[in-house]
Structure formats: C-alpha cells, structure tokens
C-alpha cells in the first residue's frame, strides 16, 4: 500500500476543506469536481468569488501552475496576493513555514502554495483553519495537475472508465504519472509503461497496481505499433540529469520522442497529453495533429483550478449551476 496516509489528512482537515492530495478521492467526489470544471468551462468568467482574497505562496518558482491558479482566481472575481520568489519573503530571513502560513491566514480566504519540501502542504493545513490547496510539494504531490489530467481525459474520451493509458518517458521521477496512476485506480484502466530501464515505473507503484487490480504492461519499445491501441498517450520529459549512466542517456534520449509519422496506426479517439514544459520529446510536427491535446490540457487547468478553489471555499456545484454572477 502506498500513500494511504493521505486519507487521514483529509479527515483531519474536514473542517477547513484543504486539498493536499486527491489520491484518496472516490469516484463520486472526482465526478463532482469534473462536473464543476465543466460548468466553469462553459462560463469561466464570473464574480462568484467577489470579495474573496486568494493567496498564492510560491516558495518555489513555477510559471504555469501559478499563472493558472491566479487566472482562475481573477476570472472568478477574487483578488490575489502572494509571492513568487521566496528570496523576497521573510522565509529567507529564517521565518518558519508555520509562521508564514499563520501570518497569511490573517489576510486570505484560501492559500495556494507550492513548496520544495515534501509534506509542506499537509503541515500547512494543520496549522491553519484557512483552506490550503497544494500546488506541489517537492516531488511528492500535485493534485491540481492530476485534476486537470483527469478532466482532460474525461473531456476527450467522454469517460474515465476502461481506458488504455500509455505513459511514456520518465516514469521513475515523474510525479504527474504517479498521481494519475493512483487517481485512475477505480476506473479499470490498462496502463502501458514505456520507459528506459533507468527510468522505469518504481516497484512501489507496480505493487500498488497489483494490490488494486490495475492491469499494466511494461515495455521499452516506443514505436508506431506499440502505441496503436492507446486511448491516452501521456508523454513526459526524459531529463539528462536523471541518469547516473550518461552513456545510457545518450543511447535512449532519442528513443522516446514522439513524431507525427508514429501516429498513422493510432486510434481515432487517441489524445496526446503532456504536463509541459516540453523540450524535445514531442516533435513540433505533432502539434498540428488532431491527436495533440497538450495545450488544451493546460487550458483545462484553469477550469479544474476554478473548481478546486470553489470547493475548498465551500461553494457547491449547485451554487455554481445557479450562479447569477456570470459575466
């Protein structure tokens, strides 16, 4: 079993509705958030958070995630405070995380935070009654990315059930693939793990699949034929710094690059996802393919994050459906 402890965290934070992890969310809760995101996609600009203050505390730099959260807050009428560089905050003077969170809790209705230390968001949620949204804690968890991945899959496939999901590239260190794997456990997926030996899916996640009756197939070949049966092709970046053996890196670095000519046999409904930033693992000629979905995926992050912010503030799906503040 892995990460079952986070179910405990959500129990503890019942009163303040923090989102530290969604790995323990059931189908009902996931569907609820997907329905919320769908509403926000139909009408992303509202005043439903008018008068609210959203703090974005980025103790570690992040471009996409921060912009997405801040856009979500702004488009719902909230005001945003925060910082993007801990060097300019009191953290650099030695202030503890607890003190920073306690201080900001006096000003904000919700705190979105990213931190380089693992478990930082969970700890923050324990020291304040203001809801915390984990925007990434080191290599540990990144629930809003998982939520937007789920929304992208749901939107493009019409369901989360019984899908063939191919994960390609760095499956060892890729936080997003681990989170997605766990969140899909109740939807009867079949995973294909395509990675070089050095970056293959860690044993603990394979064990997790076995314990949860999740089917998976491991392979190292990444060709037109091996991806022909995919519904979702989830690409990740193979980074040089992850390799202990640089000769191995040189050998495999070009083996996990997706090119347009590899899409000839793929299923009509297949979509390519990538958490971005992309470097060279998806050739630019793929961008024009109908299967390319990674930029839309990033846009879906806006709707997913609008849903998460509202959920932690206690705004319900009914509130959103009956919202009269749509612009």
């Amino acid at each position: 079993m892995i990460f079952d402890i986070y179910s405990i965290s959500s129990d503890i934070n019942m009163e303040n509705r923090s989102i530290v992890s969604i790995a323990d969310y059931g189908k009902e809760k996931i569907q609820y958030l997907l329905d919320m995101a769908t509403e926000f996609e139909a009408h992303p600009n509202r005043q439903i958070l008018k008068g609210k203050v959203v703090a974005t505390l980025f103790f570690e730099p992040s471009t996409r995630t921060r912009l997405s959260f801040e856009t979500a807050a702004n488009r719902l009428g909230a005001r945003v405070i925060g910082f993007t560089d801990p060097k300019v905050t009191s953290s650099s003077k030695g202030e503890t995380l607890k003190d920073t969170i306690k201080m900001v809790s006096n000003y904000a209705d919700v705190i979105v935070m990213r931190h380089k230390l693992e478990g930082a968001a969970l700890y923050a949620s324990e020291v304040t009654n203001v809801p915390i949204i984990n925007a990434g804690d080191g290599s540990n968890l990144h629930p809003s990315q998982t939520m937007l991945d789920l929304y992208s899959i749901y939107k493009t496939q019409g369901t989360l059930e019984n899908l063939n999901i191919y994960m390609v590239g760095d499956l060892k260190y890729g936080r997003t693939v681990h989170s997605l794997l766990m969140s899909m456990r109740k939807y009867n997926p079949t995973f294909h793990f395509i990675a070089p030996k050095e970056l293959e899916m860690p044993e603990e996640y394979k064990l997790y699949c076995q314990q949860n009756n999740i089917k998976y197939i491991e392979q190292q070949d990444f060709t037109e034929d091996t991806i022909a049966d995919a519904d979702i092709l989830y690409m990740t970046r193979v980074q040089r710094e992850r390799f202990t053996d640089l000769m191995e890196y040189e050998r495999v670095k070009d083996a996990y690059i997706l090119r347009a000519d590899m899409l000839g046999k793929c299923k009509d409904n297949m979509k390519i996802l990538h958490p971005l930033p992309r470097v060279n693992e998806i050739e630019y000629d793929v961008d024009d393919s109908k299967h390319a979905y990674y930029f839309e995926q990033a846009r879906n992050g806006l709707y997913a994050r609008e849903a998460l912010i509202c959920d932690v503030l206690g705004i319900t799906l009914d509130d959103i459906k009956n919202d009269t503040s749509i612009i």
């Binding site: 079993m1 402890i5 405990i8 503890t96 995380l97 607890k98 931190h115 380089k116 230390l117 693992e118 478990g119 930082a120 969970l122 700890y123 804690d137 080191g138 290599s139």
Partner: peptide, 19 residues
Amino acid sequence: ANPVCITNNEPMKTVFYRK
C-alpha cells in the same frame, strides 16, 4: 530519513504510521 521531508526542516513533531 528523507532530507527534503518538511519534518527535517521545520520545528515540528514527526508522525509515523506502522505499515
């Protein structure tokens, strides 16, 4: 044992569960 765990970087109590 994880150097980048928050518990090794904040004045706080550790909590472990028996697996």
